[in-house]
Design a protein around this nucleic acid. Structure first.
Length: 421
DNA sequence: TCTGGGGTCCTAGGACCC
DNA sequence: TCTGGGGTCCTAGGACCC
């Protein structure tokens, strides 16, 4: 039975999520900025047509957006995460081997019998995801993950493709590669693109034809794998079972800068609380914790940034233990007299909690922690985040991220469910 | 006035061990 | 003048992704 790799990618995902719940947005340009309404992270096609780049600072493009009556909606990650799960659920009907690659993309291995075509299956995927979730997707199909990315690139842009393109064993593969700028190849970032273009390698096809040795020397084995993939030799496997994460970070820019030690402590406690919740949800324990604080690098004022990593021994998922360590780290790196704009914590040395739990059964204090935190997690899930808190952070502080124009959390928050009047 | 947040992998170099 | 060899582990920095 022939098989191929499909990349299913949601079109303008965040903007599409917003449109599912607000039909008035359908013909308007829509952008979603990052936290603090900082940079553009999602654009509808109308916005792309205005020449606004992804990552553009909102304040710079706001006048242009307003001139075109654009909707500017602060990011609503609860809504997007929930919509993502719905899309992935529909996709799981089409394949056993699926890699949920990002919030809006999945790789999957498709199998067909000789009378079917991959393109037909691709069209059925598209039709069904749209029907059940309201989200439009594009489907690219080819022999390898990197080639399926290329196929998807064309599926999105070509009006003839209608959202689905099968390049597997296709006579048009070279043509398709020749029409993708090397900078748009998956795995080629701005640094490599600059280097490659300077040496006359301008398209995906040029890169595919570059000599192995040359590529290895300049782009390490990562580049070599990429070139092999462009040649149809699969080197990047589907990662079907989500591998255990290695790091878990929670960090934010503040709503406004602060010099206050207490404010920073409050922010750190908040971030640790979030990180420890995630840890427990994934049934992990952490072996190290890194705390970092930074001033605003865009401001012409005294700059300071520092980080400290502490060992968590034994490994723990306790908010209390992690909080105490984080605060002792903060005390080490804090310097008075700077205006801090960002802080965060990273948990490392992650391991399944059950594997480190031996020690814990002997530790009565820890068991009490466990029960208390499970109850706090339950209450917060039921009554909203921070219904119960871990002390030491005010619910409002200058460090709090601003959400100017967030849309309702239609699908995950009872108070914000859609009303029909 | 205003510039995100969360990840991964690879390499080189230093510390340390026998 | 000469200054082991081989291995592991850790970290920082650089590249990338969405």
């Amino acid at each position: 039975m022939p098989s191929a790799i499909a990349l299913v990618d949601c079109n303008n995902f965040y903007a599409s999520c917003e449109r599912v719940f607000d039909a008035r947005l359908v013909d308007r340009p829509v952008v979603v900025p990052s936290n603090n309404d900082g940079n553009i992270v999602a654009r509808s096609n109308e916005v792309k047509a205005l020449g606004i780049e992804n990552g553009a600072p909102l304040f710079k493009v706001r006048p242009l957006l307003e001139a075109h009556d654009a909707a500017i909606l602060s990011s609503n990650y609860e809504l997007y995460g929930d919509m993502s799960n719905r899309v992935m659920t529909v996709l799981s009907d089409f394949a056993d081997e699926i890699e949920n690659y990002s919030i809006d993309e999945a790789f999957m291995r498709l199998h067909i019998n000789p009378r079917e075509s991959f393109a037909e299956i691709g069209r059925e995927i598209r039709r069904r995801v749209l029907k059940y979730t309201g989200i439009p997707v594009s489907v690219g199909i080819a022999e390898t993950k990197t080639l399926s990315k290329i196929a998807n690139h064309h599926a999105k842009r070509s009006s003839k493709a209608n959202g689905v393109l099968d390049l597997a064993r296709s006579p048009y593969q070279e043509l398709a590669l020749s029409r993708v700028p090397v900078a748009d190849v998956w795995g080629v970032g701005s640094r490599y693109a600059e280097m490659l273009e300077a040496r006359g390698i301008k398209t995906a096809l040029d890169l595919r034809n570059a000599p192995d040795e040359w590529v290895r020397d300049r782009m390490t084995v990562v580049g070599l794998r990429l070139v092999q993939e462009l040649r149809g030799v699969a080197c990047i496997p589907l990662e079907i079972t989500p591998l255990t994460k290695k790091l878990l970070t929670v960090s934010r820019s503040f709503g406004s800068a602060t010099e206050s030690y207490d404010e920073l402590r409050a922010a750190i406690v908040y971030y640790v609380s979030r990180a420890a919740e995630k840890l427990r949800r994934q049934k992990l324990a952490a072996g190290s914790i890194t705390v970092f604080i930074e001033t605003d690098r865009f401001k012409p004022e005294p700059q300071y940034a520092n980080a400290v990593t502490l060992t968590v021994a034994p490994k723990s998922d306790s908010t209390f233990e992690l909080r105490d360590l984080a605060l002792s780290g903060m005390a080490k790196i804090f310097r008075a007299g700077f205006r801090y704009r960002r802080a965060g914590v990273t948990l490392g040395g992650l391991e399944l909690a059950e594997r480190v739990s031996l020690r814990l059964w002997e530790n009565e204090r820890y068991e009490r922690h466990q029960r208390l935190m499970a109850e706090i997690d339950r209450l917060n899930a039921k009554y909203g985040r921070d219904a119960v808190r871990y002390g030491l952070f005010q619910s409002e502080g200058v460090w709090r991220t601003r959400f100017g124009q967030r849309s309702p959390r239609y699908t995950t928050c009872w108070d914000e469910i859609m009303r029909v009047v």
